[in-house]
Design a protein around this nucleic acid. Structure first.
Lengths: 224, 224
DNA sequence: TTTAAAATGATAGCTTTACTATTATAAATA
DNA sequence: TATTTATAATAGTAAAGCTATCATTTTAAA
């Protein structure tokens, strides 16, 4: 079965829908690769334009600026994660199983075969690890939030909070634990690979250990 | 008692020691205020130069670039936090009490009267909340790390991990829990104030609730 | 106390970033 | 076939992110 998942993206994320044209798709697809390669700080529309054989102003027709492109890319990832969570927890009733699955999706790269439009899921995951915080850690977070730019992230957080409450309906901090779980999964991955002394995962670079840590954290916190 | 704490800062953080002159102190002191006011992205040495009545190149004599200045400022904060933790846990043997104290220091502004050189601790705390991740979420994290730029952060993380192990010597993820605790404290504060639906603290904006959440998280995770 | 060294101020200049605008050309659609 | 629409090509601007030079002031050593 060859399935292509098309996420409906918030229209405020772009000026012209990048899914609507070949150029748009190249901007996103190659943008992900270039940000992954050189990092968001050094990334510019000019450099991307060279890579995809268009001009700077060509890209500006699709995205207001590079920050918006990043927000778009990160939103893509959260949508994908929520899709995977929903898809994989179908017919599962045991909340423990659901939460383990969530942790599994959060703490690991997403299978290359998932989601069409030839997006490099490995690069996408790495970008989320290193750059996703930057989309909201700004002075304009509140106006961006009013434009619903973070909706995919908030939706996922809500959904996981729901699972946490299924496991223990009396737990009073489901949303905070949910956001902590999401962020910690990614941060521990970053630390493991770049500042390993901040973790207990040494140089093994094994996501399985991160998952064990997160599972222990979540289930002992939820224990009644 | 009027005490002035002088942190010994890693020499690689600066080109010329900002503590060694009036201009240097103004760069740091007013730099904190300006970054707090306009955010790190919009902050430039030129703007800071105008504020403190010097020139751009004057500031470049002290710091290689604005990123290094940020790293310096954040290091200042971690040093201060570790000092406070050490100072306040003197003579306390009960690991539970120590951990509660740590959480209290992490999740709240630092008293204005602490630390001389007229640093605005409130602004410093806010900067750490919004900007501290940016110091290591870069492509040059490993070289920066080799230059020991993150030592204050790693030292604090180690110390807290030690307390966690005092509470439960068999817990296998002390470092990861420590870094998760530190980061979560700040992230929950940011979310509470800017993206409250990611937390359970609503619009109350009360750090006490964050502390309750973190205490519950830590102690239930450490329970044998 | 003079003299040298070091720090600062003033000014200039250079490359890159982050845009905006204009016009020509190609592609899609009516 | 006409006409809207998208893209390419080019130009230009203000600000960011530096580096360099030199005169002047301050500090420290002889």
């Amino acid at each position: 079965m060859e399935l292509e998942i098309r996420m409906k993206m918030n229209e405020r994320l772009y000026l012209r829908d990048p899914e609507s044209s070949d150029l748009g798709k190249r901007i996103v697809r190659e943008g992900i690769l270039l940000i992954h390669k050189i990092g968001f700080e050094d990334f510019t529309f000019k450099k991307l334009a060279t890579v995809i054989n268009t001009t700077e102003s060509g890209i500006y027709r699709y995205f207001e600026n590079k920050h918006r492109l990043l927000v778009y890319i990160i939103a893509l990832y959260w949508n994908l994660v929520e899709y995977l969570v929903v898809f994989n927890t179908q017919n599962i009733t045991d909340p423990e199983k659901k939460l383990k699955l969530v942790i599994n999706v959060l703490a690991d790269e997403i299978d290359e075969s998932i989601a069409g439009n030839q997006i490099n899921n490995k690069a996408l995951f790495q970008i989320v690890i290193s750059e996703s915080n930057k989309v909201y850690l700004t002075k304009h977070v509140s106006t961006d939030n009013k434009e619903q730019l973070f909706k995919p992230y908030k939706d996922l957080c809500s959904r996981i909070a729901g699972f946490l409450l299924e496991y223990n309906p009396t737990y009073p901090f489901a949303r905070s634990l949910s956001s902590t779980l999401i962020e910690s999964a990614h941060l521990q991955y970053f630390f493991m690979n770049n500042l390993p002394s901040l973790t207990d995962f040494g140089k093994e670079k094994d996501t399985e250990k991160i998952k064990k840590f997160l599972e222990h954290l979540v289930f002992s916190t939820l224990k009644k």
